[in-house]
Amino acid sequence: MATFGIAIAGLTAMGASSSQTATALAVMLFGYGVLSIGLSVWLKMPISVVWSTPGAAFLASSQILGLTFDKAVGAFLVSSLLILLTGLWPALGKLVAKIPPQISAAMLAGVIFPFVVATVHAGVDYPLLILPPVILWLLLNRFIPIWASPVSIALGFVLIALSPEVNDISQGSFLPEFSFVGPVFDVAIILAIGVPLYLITMASQNLPGLAIMSGLGYQIPSGKVFRATGLGSALTSFFGGFGLNLAAITAALNADEHAAKDPSRRWIAASFGGVVYILFGVFAAPFAAFVLAVPRELLLSLAGLALLNTFAGSLRTAVSEDGLRLAGVATFIIGAAGITVLGIGGAFWALVVGVLIWLFTKKR
């Protein structure tokens, strides 16, 4: 539920209509299902494909740009082609990996910061709707952390659904039209959305996903996976999809001993997960209609709760090394400031400034 809400917030911030939002969700879920099944069966490894929740949060935080959806789709397509190029040309992936993780994490923390703050504001403005999920999240995070976000977010949506804050769902209900969105390429928008989305996807999903799978004993052929997900992302972008990428946490769930005793058979769990994604795609539209009826500030507050652990981890990484602390802090501040310069959003400038400070201050 939380990832659905963040994805919907991201798409609407990019200028998508209700029908375009439903189409994008359905197409991405179908894409995740097909790729999870296809890659797992082909490689006989438990490979799970999802959308990037941090990437969706980045899109939602970029509403200040006031985009039309066709320009956003152009940026989505460029981001997807960069993933495909990474699979075809490994040197690009190595170049991205050279960016210090402290800077990438700081950029991600800056992107997520507005959501975390939204939880605080909504807790003050709507205490009966937001404080119970927050308290439940704290309790579950102490004892069964893996369930903390989904259960508390579910409680939040139930409380909101029972409150008078929800708009008339019948006015916003819709079915996906699966209409083609012609991409419009704008250099400023590509730099503001496409390039940061690619870097966030690589830094927060693809590279950690490869590392997690390696730790579990699976040497994923990254070139094949990036080519498949990059091509799949490019195809779905014509319907509003903002990306298909290797899962990180979900991948671990399908690749450990709980999925199957025999490691050589754990690909079956990931394949079954693909079937579940496809079923979710069938019912994506009515759920999207409900989420779109929720006031934006409440939706962002629940998203902030879901992203709190990600924010904490990113902030910890950003300041983890003395020599990179200044670059990390500067990257975080610029990313969180919500600025726009020359029509390009703060995430791009945060990355540029962070890399420049790192290059200037690092020891020769």
Rank of each mutant, 00 (worst) to 15 (best):
F185P: 01
G172F: 02
A148I: 00
L138W: 07
V181E: 03
D70T: 14
A72Q: 14
S80N: 09
K71W: 02
A91R: 14
L191Y: 00
P164V: 12
T86W: 07
V117S: 15
S79M: 13
P90A: 07
P90R: 04
P100L: 01
L129F: 08
A106Y: 10
L191A: 03
P145I: 02
L131A: 13
I146T: 07
F174V: 03
F69I: 08
N141K: 04
S79R: 05
A154E: 01
W137Q: 03
G74Y: 13
V181R: 04
L82H: 09
F115E: 11
S149M: 06
S79I: 09
G156E: 14
I189F: 05
P176Y: 08
S104I: 02
A97S: 11
W147K: 06
S170C: 00
K71L: 06
I112W: 07
L84M: 09
P100W: 08
V195R: 13
S152Q: 05
G110M: 12
F69Y: 14
L67Y: 03
V195W: 11
D168I: 11
A154W: 02
L84I: 00
V195C: 13
V166D: 05
R142I: 08
L82K: 01
W137P: 00
P100I: 06
G66T: 02
F76T: 13
A109P: 14
P176R: 04
S149V: 12
L84R: 01
I169P: 06
A72S: 10
G74S: 08
A192Q: 05
G66P: 00
V184C: 07
G87K: 02
V166F: 04
K71M: 05
V96R: 15
L95K: 15
G194V: 12
L191Q: 00
V78A: 04
V73S: 14
L131S: 09
F178N: 08
L159C: 13
P164Y: 06
A105L: 00
I193Y: 12
L159K: 12
S173M: 11
L84Q: 11
A188Q: 00
S104V: 02
L92S: 14
G182H: 02
S170G: 12
L84S: 09
S80H: 09
V181Q: 15
H121K: 03
F185D: 08
